[in-house]
Amino acid sequence: MLLDIKNLSVSVEDKTILKDFSLSVDEGEIHAIMGPNGSGKSTLANVLAGNETYEIENGNIIFNQKNFLELNIEERSQEGLFLAFQYPIEIPGVSITPFLRSAINSKLKYKKEKEFDSLEFAKLIRSKAKELNIPNEMLSRSLNSGFSGGEKKRYEILQMSILKPKLAILDETDSGLDIDALKIVTDSVNRLKKEISSFIIITHYERLLDLITPDKVHIMKNGKIVESGTKSLARKIEESGYQSFE
């Protein structure tokens, strides 16, 4: 098992958001999590990535046989977790290429593998950018600043394809994308399926799941998974909303 979350309760500013939450993801699986606004989906993503604003009240997270709660943000990333942010943070003045090279080298160093020099890395990032239809000139721009919503999302996917995580969490990566951009994103997810073993896809829309076929679909409400099933569950939501799940 790659990820095993057991009885996780999480609060922020004394408000409990995740209640006794459990979920397991096996290697090679794609899980989709759907649910209404405020059900705790983004909290789950942030907690897995180690965001320190959230308080873990109870429960366990085991990732790749490691107790995740004992690892800090960057160690979790180096262990192979990637979060594609719902709202990628703008960092003016930091250009993507040196940033991403530092990121991958941190990971390689952690695994005691050979790091990239700047020339090798430039080649790598250009080839990956090409797959995602990102023009070269964009690679010298600052991280996410002044980007359109769609550009930011594509940048997240670019980072994912370079960092090659074991588990990628896509937090509403599909929202704000037009159909062409969505196609580019899903194509690369499907391509990466072979290299990246597992995905957790957080989404509002079934349309994404037409393009990436999930192994499991979970419905989240009030900080808990209220129902799990296959892709047909997503269709049910599209037709009748979340009201029927209690």
Binding site: A49, G50, N51, E52, N72, I73, E74, R76, S77, Q78, F82, L83, F85, P88, I89, I91, F99, L100, S102, A103, I104, S106, K107, Y110, Q159, L163
Partner: peptide, 12 residues
């Protein structure tokens, strides 16, 4: 911003 950078594997 610190969270974002660290989530990509950069140390504090």
């Amino acid at each position: 911003q610190i969270f974002y950078l660290r989530s990509r594997g950069l140390s504090k």
